[in-house]
């Protein structure tokens, strides 16, 4: 247990180091001079002196290793620098955007659950019947449809033609419907299939038959036996899907003008706001590693064989 945790923690640090080094290098390699572009955006006449002053202020005159060291020391204290564009601390900007993105991804996961669980269960209980075919078709479409296109179609249909839901910005429940559905749909389709396969496999296990022979009710068998066994592949896949979710959030946020982290980073990219991009990349990497740590831990909760070192390890 401790070893696994330690290993994951080490991975977290290693990944963050790798990411920080990579983003820092890329930032330095980046074409164009941020100092100049900064000054240009201020629309003032700039002099050599101004430029040198700003350069010094940003620490760009120091040797690169020292710059990295100082930057890293800052990161350690959660100081990710200041946005070139607004001058606000990157951490503050991200902190204000994070809940908005969390709301979107949370909603998408909810949409996913609302589709996946009933559809996957129905398909597993009626293999070869219409819910199964529906699930199969949806899985294929879900894995093939570009998210941004689905979003556009939804906007066109539900927002422009039917005028049911708003298509722009953040607001109440109605603002969440289309973005969350857009982000959650592909996941739902794929996971419904995964759940169906897992359930079918676990329902064919001998222990299910034995439980039936003991007179345990079908409801208990489904919820406490079959679902539990089918959860393993689902949870494993979730660790891999988190990247999709975060990437998809960027697309969906742009599409629906949702003022979250994704929108922030898109603005930062087009504005060459390197500290913000850097902060975003570091944060995302950390989230992915953390989620995988949680997946590992829940794996052990789901299958005690892993906890006791029997059977296959995570």
């Amino acid at each position: 247990m401790v070893i696994i945790l330690g290993k994951r923690l080490f991975q977290l640090i290693f990944v963050l180091f790798l990411l920080s080094a990579a983003t820092f290098t890329m930032m330095k390699l980046a074409p164009g001079d941020p100092v100049r572009s900064l000054l240009r955006t201020d629309e003032f006449l700039t002099t050599q002196a101004d430029e040198a002053k700003l350069r010094k202020e940003l620490g760009f005159d120091l040797p690169i290793v020292v710059q990295y060291g100082e930057w890293m020391a800052g990161v350690m204290q959660l100081d990710l620098g200041k946005s070139y564009l607004t001058g606000k601390p990157v951490l503050d900007v991200m902190a204000s955007r994070l809940p908005i993105t969390a709301q979107l991804t949370g909603g998408a996961l909810l949409v996913m659950l609302l589709i996946t669980v009933p559809l996957g269960t129905a398909a597993a209980l009626m293999p070869g019947r219409w819910p199964d075919h529906l699930g199969r078709a949806l899985a294929l479409i879900g894995a093939s449809v570009p998210g941004f296109w689905l979003g556009l179609l939804l906007i066109y249909g539900f927002s422009y033609k039917l005028q049911l839901f708003p298509s722009m910005g953040k607001g109440g429940f109605f603002h969440m419907v289309l973005p969350c559905f857009t982000l959650g749909f592909s996941l739902a389709a794929v996971y419904a299939r995964l759940l169906r396969n897992g359930l079918l496999e676990s329902l064919s296990q001998h222990y299910i038959r034995a439980a039936r022979a003991r007179g345990v009710s079908e409801r208990v068998i489904l919820t406490r036996y079959a679902f539990r066994a089918a959860l393993l592949p689902v949870v494993t896949m979730f660790g891999m899907s988190i990247g999709y979710l975060l990437g998809g959030a960027v697309v969906v946020e742009t599409l629906f003008s949702w003022p979250g982290l994704g929108n922030m980073v898109m603005d930062a990219i087009f504005g060459r706001d390197y500290p913000v991009i850097q902060g975003y990349v570091l944060f995302t990497g950390a989230v992915v590693v953390m989620i995988n740590l949680i997946v590992d831990l829940s794996y052990r909760a789901i299958d005690p064989r892993i906890r006791f070192g029997k059977g296959e390890s995570a």
């Binding site: 988190i242 990437g247 960027v250 991009i277 990349v281």
Partner: peptide, 18 residues
């Protein structure tokens, strides 16, 4: 290390910096 970075995010980083 690389797996922790979804390709979509990496693409954003690369596009952002380069």
């Amino acid at each position: 290390g690389l797996l922790a970075l979804p390709e979509f995010i990496l693409a954003i980083a690369v596009a952002g910096f380069l």
